[in-house]
Design a protein around this nucleic acid. Sequence first.
DNA 1: TCGTTAATTGAGATTGAGTATCAATATTAC
DNA 2: GTAATATTGATACTCAATCTCAATTAACGA
Lengths: 140, 140
Amino acid sequence: MDAQEKFENFIRKKGLKNTSERKRVIEAVKSLKGHFDTEKLYSAVKRLNKNVSRASVYRTVPLLAAAGVVHESMHKDGRTMYEYSSDYHHHDHMLCIKCGRIIEFEESGIEGLQEKVCRKHRFKMTGHGLVIKGICDKCV
Amino acid sequence: MDAQEKFENFIRKKGLKNTSERKRVIEAVKSLKGHFDTEKLYSAVKRLNKNVSRASVYRTVPLLAAAGVVHESMHKDGRTMYEYSSDYHHHDHMLCIKCGRIIEFEESGIEGLQEKVCRKHRFKMTGHGLVIKGICDKCV
DNA sequence: TCGTTAATTGAGATTGAGTATCAATATTAC
DNA sequence: GTAATATTGATACTCAATCTCAATTAACGA
């Protein structure tokens, strides 16, 4: 399903409005590769001459996350980083504390153990994120 | 080893100074139970009449983390949460997005798989944090 | 299509956590 | 004790993020 379509379904279900500003923010999301924070998204909006206010971009991001258009990926320097869901297949992150590089990895065993823990605590998981901090091979 | 002693060793190794302000911040850390952010620590300092400036408390926290006196625990609402290391035995967290409750859990299998991933990427882990977001059993 | 209703927008003010400045002070090593 | 230097604190500042509120616009029923 296309991002615009996915968002439209979400908006309709919630009784909200699918404004041109929101559509333009989604276009900007599509133009970004890899991880981004809200500020970077706002820059992308401006770069594409989409003319959406800073406030609206900030207001739109949580909606995109709730709709599944973007995926809340990790925290870096106290900021939430997102990824466009179309690019997304589940993975976790290693963050190099020296150079800031982000390395993605997949480990299906970890996923399974998480589900086990949630069942045990009767916790309904909506998302999860594992960040391993340390020194990457290029910085040793 | 006591927190003050542990910090003293760290300070000496780094050629820094063990000031009375830093000692007082550690006293405040000890007075806190569970997770806290820097602002909460600063409140604790004031509550105990320790009279350390806001700036110094903020400056001290990264030192405490580097010294292992506190443990960088997780991110909540974009803020870094810490735990006093004496209370600390390794665990991860579930965060209820409705009530904000933090549930701790241990799953040694996950630890092992993390180490495996790090070896594979020649990544030297210094810390890690897993947060599972969702709805807790009291909020269903 | 028109009109009503309520959500949304945008510009700018505001908040608030965290950081920088810098003169005064305290700690450490000798 | 003295010199060298790290640290402190009051306050100014930064900057991401939110709030305000009048003007606008989407959604929907008639």
